[in-house]
Write a protein that binds this DNA or RNA. Structure first.
Lengths: 216, 216
DNA sequence: TAGATTGTTAATCGATTAACAATC
DNA sequence: TAGATTGTTAATCGATTAACAATC
């Protein structure tokens, strides 16, 4: 259905298009031109048209794009119309925050299980899910077949759990650890969130902006 | 001191270099060649040499790079040798997790204050910091002069607080909201973390991988 | 010295922007 | 029809990779 390979840069812009179109819809927009959308999003109209044309022809010459229809198309492209069961490994501070903060349904997922090895958190309730002992993970996976897992465990524990999960059919990871999943397992879908790295780049910007100002 | 403008792609790789070099150091490596580092990190040797050469000549022909020295240089480039005071706005699930999960010191920051407007969390202790009423933020900023703020508040509240913070001298934001800071304030350093967008791209990959396999 | 590996220039590749014919 | 705006091709820009002379 869709064209061959979509570049990473395009994929990363899709959720933002989806969000902006949702806002436009809420604000009563029925149509929008690539020029107007570009202005609002801080992109170029060319880029927007190129991006959409990776997936098909969603606009109409002389008119622009229908906001609701375009939003739905991008939602479909992102797979938000299909809900994938997902489990969370690690119910520490971060794991708990992710579990309660993220609106999984609207991102194409449903959180169906939470596992930890720490007795202090096993039994805790996060939303409507109770944290289970990680020893129960294997049998849970065999029953429920989650295709995706969130990794919120220490780096040292990651390798072992990832191998287990892959053997149980998990094929995608939302990875908050520093374990280098993509290097070890090339056939698996991985989305890394390296919060520490993200903060460090802010430190760079903060410190080098001054220099840059000095140079100009 | 440093060359004119460093591309975003290079900046984003710096924290990862820093991490890998730290691990190498821990494992007793004294020297490493670009070829060997490239292999470990899943990059090309060319790219690594190009990246480092943006900032200076850190290697030695015929030898390679001294691990400890290179790590220190990259740390300096990232500004990790200078600690910037930072405050957190929003002490909900995510704010609390960030405050307790992140090792600020090693990323060039120190968390010095946490603010929220919800009476239910004001007074809570996170680490050694007590959550203050957001009405106290202005006077706190005048005294302590934080240069950086973490935004973990609802999108609707962001615009107002950002304006306040900028007027108090805050010049960098670690932004977990969907408020489009970079478009509104172009002179400010911003690092966006859009967790929802990140998860949505994983949905895309999960659903399109199948298609891709079908096409090949 | 000979071997290794950098720093750096040149070549390639990919992504963004510009331009314009097609068409609503 | 005339005006607007897309879809798409061509031009430009930037980032990555390859190659190699410099040099430790």
């Amino acid at each position: 259905m869709s064209k061959n390979t979509i570049s990473n840069s395009v994929i990363r812009r899709l959720p933002r298009y989806y969000r902006f179109l949702g806002e436009l819809e809420t604000n009563g927009y029925v149509r929008i031109s690539s020029r107007e959308l570009a202005e609002k999003m801080g992109l170029t109209a060319s880029q927007i048209r190129q991006d959409f044309n990776c997936f098909g022809e969603f606009g109409q010459q002389g008119y622009g794009y229908n906001v609701a229809a375009l939003k739905m198309e991008i939602g479909k492209i992102l797979g938000l119309d299909q809900i994938t069961p997902m489990i969370l490994i690690g119910a520490g501070n971060l794991g708990k925050a992710i579990a309660s903060h993220i609106d999984f349904k609207s991102k194409g997922f449903e959180l169906v299980g939470i596992f930890d090895r720490n007795p202090a958190v096993i039994g805790d309730k996060i939303g409507d899910i109770t944290v289970s002992d990680i020893s129960e993970m294997d049998s849970f996976c065999e029953e429920t077949k989650p295709q995706c897992a969130i990794l919120c465990i220490p780096k040292e524990a990651a390798s072992k759990e990832v191998d287990r999960l892959i053997s149980k059919g998990v094929r995608a990871f939302w990875n908050f650890t520093h374990y280098d999943l993509r290097i070890e397992h090339s056939d698996i879908s991985v989305e890394n969130v390296h919060l520490g790295d993200s903060l460090a780049t802010l430190s760079y910007r903060l410190n080098s902006d001054n220099e840059t100002c000095g140079n100009i």
